[in-house]
Amino acid sequence: MRFLGKAAGGLYLLLLYLFVAGPLLFVIATSFNPATSFPAPFEGLTLSWYAAILRRPEFLSAAGTSAVVAALAAALAVVVAFLAAYALSRNGSSSARGAMATLLASPLLVPQVVISLAILQLASAWGVGTGFWGLVAAHAVYVMPFALRLLLTGLARFDFAVEEASRSLGGGWLSTWREVTLPLLRPSIVAGFTFCFILSFVNLPLSLFLTSPDTATLPIVMFAYIESRIDPMIAAVASVIVLAAGTATILLDRFLHVRLVD
């Protein structure tokens, strides 16, 4: 009975993970299929679709734009979230902390399409274009709660007595932060930045109304491409993203021991 129960549980988890990861695995498989239509029966193995990406400069420059937007949004989000998480963990009563954390997590509950639309309409109400910074703004406000959550988790394990130890040994505010607080929280800060960067990099809806041909992000270029046709090249682009995200997940776990969940 016990064994059967365990086997049933294992089978359930296996099917669930197949369901969750299946579409991704299928996209990766498709990117190696030489057939020109999508989807198509498998005809062999080729890397030609990956080579094809290199002949499409709009994908490469869009990836560059996405990287810059994601880096700026993640940096802004992490700095702002760090200060908030630090203040909440250090001093807040638990009820005040809960209320503040809920308020600061509110961007998660606003549809990303709506964030994008709202920033567009604010810009047009002021009679200005949204431009590059409108894009960064939308991404920053959306990823900030993720940074906040990771930093709050990191700070929950932080013994604030080490700051007092530093102060009692003669360290001022600044040197205490530089020597003790920031180095100890570095894993959470790096992980927060990485998660925010990736979430921003792969996000389509936030950019939907905020890009111009000069500031098209990679998901926007993919979106436009898929509107006209679908072929395994787009699967190759997606596979590269999946690979990068997977590598980052593993690196964070291996070297920083940080996950979205403890």
């Binding site: 991704l24 996209v27 998660f195 389509l204 997606a238 993203i241 997940t249 593993i250 969940v261």
Partner: peptide
């Protein structure tokens, strides 16, 4: 990690699948 990974890969790539 297996659950975090699809979140990070993004819905656009998943929807292609």
């Amino acid at each position: 990690m297996g659950l975090t990974f699809p979140i990070l890969a993004g819905p656009l790539t998943v929807v292609l699948g």
